[in-house]
Design a protein around this nucleic acid. Structure first.
Length: 519
DNA sequence: TTAACTGTTGGAAAC
DNA sequence: TGTTTCCAACAGTTA
């Protein structure tokens, strides 16, 4: 039987290595690729202008690809649960294909969609291609629990063999034989909307990192050509504050699935095969893809991964509520130029280096402001082009020493850390032009500049640029103490919970004595 | 010539 | 994928 199929793009905005798309084309007499855009989502403020633009550019690129293959992308406006039943009927659909998504929101949505499809007699095909491995298989191979250390993940993966090889994009013939003829008013009815049409005001005039599969593959190719660089890549040695990115900036493309992780993975393997020596995970380029896999697997196997409460892997901490501090951090007004420059780059460009994320995340949470990592998670979710449920939550827990990472006394200094790779503060001057004339010996701590120096630099601290909102030396010390206390408290609670079962033979008074001793 | 002093470096430990 | 402090070792300087 020949199908009338729609392939539903959500992530996976690409035609290369797209097994669900290929499955949709197979055995179809009618085929339409769709994307569902919910305009109500625009006003939610959850997605910043830069990422909206990235998405629209990616859709435009997808539409162009289908054009050359003899079809078009159908962009439909509304919610999936409204749009899908309508087009099931209108187009007489018999089959729906899409890429598997492990995020809780997506799972819930897809479950409802599967039910809807069943009601309409529509067959559903899902394929995994957003991660290197099938997260549920990794979890199964680890005894039903997600690996919670990188080492453990590597052990489990070593038993699972290599990731599946990427699939070729569909041929023109494969599409041609089932593409529905495009109507003259396709653009008006199903075209990709512009930013203006969505009512989104751009932050930058042009995209520093344009969205789309074409740009993703170009960018990947550009970096893979630098074979020495690929083989010598060590993430901790790359710079958080270089004027141009010191890493690939492929993360937004992986987030939206403009680039297949498997295509990138095998691209890296090809380079390694040519050279004798190359770096190894976790610091290598391949290792970065495995970090992504690590957090995807952890998130897929942990309830409430994006929040502290009812999240079994997350340390429970008594964070402060402090709107004033949070706003200062969010808008780059902490008075620490290194922190403020990073937050400015994030807002303007939608991408900051991994270690820059470390610096500002540590500052917001356990280092300085003692504000919940969930607040930072929300800000990153809005502003990052590569904002990704699993990686965002996982890394925020890591940096706040709430999960995965526990050496809470390792605190980044908002003054010292940036100096190592940018002693003259070029990065700060680029993003905070108000400090352009500040002499380099004061650029990381301008409040120490004598009044005459501030005047000469045209930047009075407390007037043209804020005074530091906290004294790092003071608050970081206090926060380490709070962290120590919270961890001791939790350790006690844990052993108290365990005791009755462990010592079921002994009397209650004995265990009470013991718990007193421990304090 | 050398003991005493100063400053730098690097490694370990503490936070 | 931290930073600071402390101390020993060492080199250079001084009286």
């Amino acid at each position: 039987m020949a199908h009338r199929t729609i392939h539903w793009f959500r992530k996976g905005l690409r035609i290369h290595d797209n097994p669900a798309l290929l499955a949709g084309l197979d055995g179809s007499k009618e085929f339409r690729p769709i994307f569902i855009l919910d305009p109500h989502f625009v006003s939610s403020g959850l997605v910043g202008a830069n990422r909206w633009r990235f998405l629209l550019e990616s859709l435009q690129d997808l539409d162009n690809s289908f054009k050359t293959l003899g079809s078009r992308l159908y962009v439909l406006q509304g919610t999936p649960l409204d749009v899908l039943p309508r087009i099931f009927k209108e187009w007489n659909i018999t089959r729906l294909t899409f890429e598997m998504d492990t995020e809780p929101y997506a799972r819930q949505r897809d479950e409802a969609v599967c039910q809807l499809a069943a009601e309409h007699g529509v067959e559903v095909i899902q394929r995994v291609s957003h991660t290197l491995f099938v997260t549920s298989s990794v979890i199964r191979n680890n005894g039903g629990k997600p690996p919670l250390t990188y080492q453990r993940l590597q052990t489990v993966l070593s038993k699972m063999g290599a990731p599946a090889k990427p699939r070729d994009p569909p041929t023109k013939e494969a599409i041609h034989k089932c593409a529905v003829p495009i109507e003259a008013d396709h653009g008006a009815k199903y075209g990709v909307p512009t930013l203006e049409q969505l009512g989104v005001k751009p932050i930058q005039e042009e995209s520093l990192y344009p969205g789309g599969e074409t740009e993703a593959l170009r960018r990947m190719g550009e970096y893979l050509e630098r074979k020495d660089w690929v083989c010598k890549f060590e993430k901790p040695k790359t710079q958080p504050n270089s004027l141009e990115p010191s890493t690939t900036v492929l993360s937004p493309y992986l987030k939206f699935g403009c680039l297949s992780p498997r295509t990138f993975y095998y691209g890296i393997q090809d380079v390694y095969r040519e050279k004798k020596n190359y770096t190894k995970p976790p610091v290598s380029l391949e290792g970065q893809l495995l970090w992504r896999e690590f957090f995807y697997t952890a998130a897929a196997g942990t309830p409430n991964f994006h929040q502290m409460v009812d999240n079994p892997v997350c340390l429970q901490l008594p964070w402060d509520n402090n709107t004033e501090f949070l706003e200062a951090w969010k808008y780059g007004r902490t008075g620490y130029p290194f922190i403020d420059a990073i937050m400015t780059q994030l807002r303007q460009e939608g991408w900051i280096h991994h270690l820059a994320r470390h610096a500002v995340a540590c500052f917001l949470t356990r280092g300085d402001l003692w504000i919940s990592w969930e607040e930072g998670e929300k800000v990153f979710e809005e502003l990052l082009l590569d904002a990704d449920y699993s990686l965002n939550a996982g890394n925020w827990m890591w940096l706040s020493a709430s999960a995965f990472f526990h050496q809470y006394f390792r605190v980044y200094s908002p003054i010292v850390f940036g100096k190592k790779t940018d002693p003259t503060g070029q990065y700060i001057k680029k993003y905070l032009p108000v400090l352009k004339k500040m002499p380099i010996q004061y650029i990381y701590e301008p409040w120490n500049a004598p009044r005459s120096v501030q005047e000469k630099a045209g930047c009075i601290i407390g007037q043209d640029y804020p005074r530091p909102i906290v004294d790092h030396a003071q608050v970081s010390k206090r926060n380490i103490g709070r962290m120590k206390e919270a961890r001791a408290c939790q350790a006690n609670a844990k052993s108290d919970n365990k005791r009755p079962t462990e010592e079921s033979q002994t009397t209650k008074t004995k265990s009470a004595k013991k718990s007193k001793k421990m304090k």
